[in-house]
Amino acid sequence: MRRSISQKNRRAAWLGLLPFLLFCLAFEIVPILLLIRDSVFSKAGTLTMSNYKQVLAPLYLKSFWNSIRLSGITALIGTVAGLFIGYSIYRWPSQRIRNLLITLSDVTTNFAGAPLAFAFIIILGSNGLVTQFFLKSLGLKIYPAFSIYSFSGLILAYVYFQLPLMVLLIIPAFGGIKKEWRESATNLGADTSAFWWHIGLPILAPSLIAGFVLLFANAFGAYATAYTLTGSRLSLVTLQIGFTITGEVLHDPGIGQAMAILSLIIMGTSIGIYRLAIIRAERWNRH
């Protein structure tokens, strides 16, 4: 008798979550499920992969290639540079400076989108400060080999928010490398490079993988920075999906839906790998 009451209570307690769950269903889950459904059904209501076949056209394939390349390159630069900068911060003697640098990373990783893009136009646009400085003081013409409005410019702007994110992710991981291990390794005759190769890097590996895939997803889903810098000059997946909504470039909405689902799969895989890597990384920090 008592048990059935508490069971009833427990079931009633779930009702308390109803407003939140309904909100998630209405504005997140159901719209995404309908998007998946629409992407595989034709207007006549038959199951078809034609939307996905159309994505194989050179224009859309190119936008996937550009997005994957941009995300991969900026994630790799962010991961490697973030590792060295993170370690430099972690070993900095003054606690105050360490905290200051971490705070700076915390703030700057949120500086994305239009203001950041415009900041880069100011310094590296065709009349930008750094561009002019190179031209007048050093006689170096960086345009047209480099352009802030092109792929190379996007890399520079994306690394700006990727790098501090990696720094924030990797600093806690250094805590997993115990001083005693370093001492034991030295006592057993390992030099610095041997220590890092056999002990340091394997301990950091899950955090580095987690960082890389998170940075990849971070760049792949970005829209505002690319939109402000390149407009429609460069084809990226997010920009193409945006065009489907605004109707600036006329193409079949089905293609936009298929591209959206494909990018969901890419993002979902990245976030999945990130979660698994984070679980492995946390093992080193537990003790």
Binding site: P31, Y223, L264
Partner: peptide
């Protein structure tokens, strides 16, 4: 449910909502 928004790019959420509503 709290990880999902990280995996959904803004453009995809916008497309899904605009088409349903």
């Amino acid at each position: 449910l709290m990880i999902l928004p990280f995996g959904i790019p803004g453009v995809v959420l916008a497309l899904a909502l605009v088409q349903v509503y």
